[in-house]
Amino acid sequence: MQHDWAINKQIGKDRTLDKTHALDQFLSQVERRAFKIAKLAVGNHDEALDIVQDSMIGLVQKYANRPADEWTPLFYHILQSRIRDWYRKNKVRTTWMSWLGFRKNGEEEELENALEALPDPHGRDPSQVAANEHSMEDLEVAIQTLPLRQQQAFLLRTWEGLSVADTATAMKCSQGSVKTHYSRAVHTLREALEEHWT
């Protein structure tokens, strides 16, 4: 016969396993989009990965016990905070670098140019690749040139499918602000892209 504490311990273990499984599923569903959103915001692959990892850890540490349907806005709320933190740090760093007179190394620039000039490893038709990649590049560039708040409102609403209320929670602003940012973003993007896409 099992004691009460042993039964409770087993129930606790089962709950932790269920929670781990649910969080694993949730994070694997959002991780790619979260990475892309972070990369569009900060423009750096490794920094974007770090931001996503911090956000995942933040969600698990702070909100694992909250109902699963709250995880999406909470996760994006953390992601937005991390992106804003990155902007603040980067601004300070850029200011210091410009004061100290640091510039990008010429050799690094040459290497990047050389890598871009390499042929496609999959041997695809260059014109097809160019058309497809141009289309994607145009979209990326257009999204990246949006002001950060418009960019994030647009991605969270259009791509992640968050409601206005959840987007407002994630962005820590009013629903009215979300609507304004979103409609401005859509207007700008349509102007920039529709001509190329039709």
Partner: peptide
Amino acid sequence: LGAATLSKLNQSRQAALAQL
């Protein structure tokens, strides 16, 4: 996204779940 990026994302997820 590429295998390297997906692997990093997977590692990040495991690191987060380890917090439980």
